[in-house]
Design a protein around this nucleic acid. Structure first.
Length: 245
DNA sequence: ACGTATGTTATCCT
DNA sequence: TAGGATAACATACG
């Protein structure tokens, strides 16, 4: 569920319901961070996403949902486990489980910089490059997971992007040639859209080149290690992915 | 059947 | 006190 493209899929599924600006007729769930009644009889102005955040925008506040590792949702269905937040409209309902739910006051644009989101129309590769250059000592395997630089990129995307760009995960930003830095930034968006397409076709895993693989496409042995300050599993090919220094 | 993991953050420790 | 380690969340997958 959790990486950016999966949130775009949720947004697309909701768009297909043609809800317009639906009024919340009933609110369910055990969300504790705010009073659920705040949403009652309010009109949803828009459904948005920013990276891994799913946003339900009202006139003067926004409900933010983060699915973390285990979160899930159902549209017009319910599961037996306790719902965290459920929104019931005239004809449809949305149910969110095992997620983190927060309420953001004011206009949503004051909370988010859309150009950080690899899936957004507003995405800015030049801004990403500028931010990377401000972190010369950071490792590429860490920086790809930095949501303030690559909002929406998760561990799968990280691994696949590094392989596509032929960059070894342990490179420092300052050691990468400019062309490689650009490749890193561009592939983070490119692969995210491929992820979206393949996930919709239920064919995500068969396109993995390194993530969860034993061999790379050139039949070299894949290394699997917990790397960087994030200690996330990193799959990489020592032969294909270069160390610059 | 069991170990692992598409993520984040609060809290405890050094 | 900054930082690092750890636990917590609950489910699907191989």
């Amino acid at each position: 569920m959790p990486e950016g493209p999966s949130i775009v899929i949720l947004k697309d599924l909701i768009k297909e319901l043609h809800l317009g600006k639906p009024e919340v007729l009933e609110v369910t769930g055990n969300v504790k961070n705010f009073d659920k009644d705040r949403l009652l009889h309010q009109k949803v102005e828009d459904f948005k996403s920013w990276g891994k955040h799913f946003l339900i925008c009202f006139n003067d506040f926004t409900v933010r949902i983060h699915f973390m590792l285990f979160g899930s949702y159902l549209i017009n269905e319910r599961k037996k486990t306790a719902v965290k937040l459920g929104l019931i409209f005239k004809k449809d309902e949305l149910n969110f489980y095992t997620c983190k739910v927060d309420l953001l006051e004011g206009n949503v644009n004051e909370h988010y910089t859309w150009q950080n989101d690899v899936m957004a129309d507003e995405w800015s590769s030049s801004t990403a490059i500028k931010k990377l250059k401000e972190k010369p000592n950071a490792l590429v395997c860490d920086v790809l997971l930095d949501q303030q630089v690559f909002s929406g990129v998760g561990n799968i995307i990280k691994n696949e992007v590094l392989y596509r760009a032929r960059i070894h995960p342990l490179n420092k930003i300052e050691d990468l040639p400019t062309a490689k830095l650009k490749a890193l930034v561009n592939e983070s968006r490119n692969y995210s859209f491929d992820f979206l397409k393949w996930k919709k076709e239920n064919a995500l895993s068969k396109h993995w080149e390194v993530y969860s693989q034993k061999e790379c496409p050139l039949k070299h042995k894949i290394n699997k290690k917990e790397l960087g300050k994030t200690h996330r599993q990193t799959y990489f090919c020592e032969k294909c992915q270069k160390i610059y220094k």
